[in-house]
């Protein structure tokens, strides 16, 4: 028995001259949600397509549910399900027909397939639109039928490629609930997302990918603490006081605080909370008048920025092409 759902070693995928995935190694323990976080074009979809046996890696190898991706592709396919980013069901058919169709393909008899389709439609609250063509579904319904089609038989490992991109908050929450239910039932979920909040909310383990490389990995807590405990912001009534405080901060934190002239505020990144408390105390001791102060947890956004050193840009050329 392996304890890992995915064990990838130095996977590389090259499209022309572009190294879409550039030497990624990762291990995903069974039974968790692994969040693969990165901007558009970072290589998330390419990675998922390799792990789901759709693309052959140029270099490296991987085991999925203990089976070798290259030599035992069929066994891998037995253990996984893939919900792609776009149209992972036939838009021309109705929701019910799609589910019967997939059920037949996984090996159910005609009668069982119909039963299974109706069960799924009921559980995913799609009974009302069961006979409507999928292309007439709303975004949220689309996503639900996509996922329903992926769990016709409960997969041991489910790949979800950007499951909530473009969904309204309510539909997004529904998808999140579905993911949580799946994991509770023992399915391992490997999802890609470009939303930090989503990784934060759902993923037990987060891998951050940028330009084809895995640049950080850890729980959301670990990732956040890797850049410190957060930040301290102090507001002042006038810039005189700000000047005095600035000097105190420099000696206390041994770093230059960010100054916001409009707000008349100072912000410093802090490593431990105790230090922040001490610095505030120091301001009071030296009679610096402060208006208010606030502490903030680092957001994954900040983590992302710190790690990649660049603003999350919307580079075109999404990795789904080819």
């Amino acid at each position: 028995m392996t304890t890992y759902a995915v064990e990838a070693t130095d996977l590389v995928k090259i499209f022309g001259k572009h190294r879409a995935v550039d030497g990624i190694s990762l291990k995903v323990p069974k039974g968790i949600v692994y969040g693969f976080l990165g901007p558009n074009g970072a290589g998330k979809t390419t990675m998922i397509r390799m792990l789901a046996t759709l693309l052959k890696p140029n270099e490296g190898h991987a085991k999925v549910m203990g089976y070798d991706l290259g030599k035992e592709a069929d066994k891998v396919r037995h253990s996984i399900s893939l919900t792609g980013q776009f149209a992972s069901v036939d838009e021309e058919l109705s929701g019910r027909e799609n589910l019967i169709f997939i059920s037949r393909l996984v090996g159910y008899s005609r009668k069982q397939a119909k039963l299974r389709a109706d069960e799924l439609l009921h559980a995913f609250q799609l009974e009302d639109v069961a006979k409507r063509q999928v292309k007439k579904y709303s975004g949220g319904m689309r996503r639900r039928i996509d996922i329903a089609a992926s769990i016709v038989t409960s997969p041991e490992l489910l790949f979800l490629d950007e499951p909530t991109t473009g969904l309204d908050p309510r539909s997004r929450n529904q998808v999140w609930d579905i993911v949580k239910a799946l994991v509770k039932n023992g399915t391992t979920v490997f999802l890609t997302t470009q939303y930090l909040e989503e990784a934060d909310q759902l993923a037990d383990l987060i891998g951050v990918i940028d330009r084809g490389k895995l640049i950080a990995e850890g729980t959301s807590k670990e990732l956040k603490s890797s850049i410190g405990a957060g930040s301290l912001t102090v507001h002042f009534d006038d810039s005189e006081e700000l000047k005095k405080a600035q000097n105190i901060f420099i000696s206390q934190f041994e770093q230059e605080p960010d100054i916001n002239e409009q707000d008349i505020s100072l912000t410093v990144m802090i490593k431990e909370h105790a230090k922040a408390a001490k610095a505030i105390g120091e301001l009071a001791n030296t009679n610096v008048q402060i208006k208010d102060f606030s502490m903030s947890q680092p957001s994954l956004d900040e983590v992302f920025l710190t790690l990649t050193g660049n603003v999350q840009d919307q580079e075109g050329g999404d990795s789904t092409n080819e």
């Binding site: 529904q174 579905i178 239910a181 799946l182 039932n185």
Partner: peptide, 14 residues
């Protein structure tokens, strides 16, 4: 809904 979905996930053998 989550519980409805959990209910239909019982079957893990394909």
């Amino acid at each position: 809904k989550p519980s409805a979905i959990e209910e239909i996930l019982t079957n893990r053998t394909r």
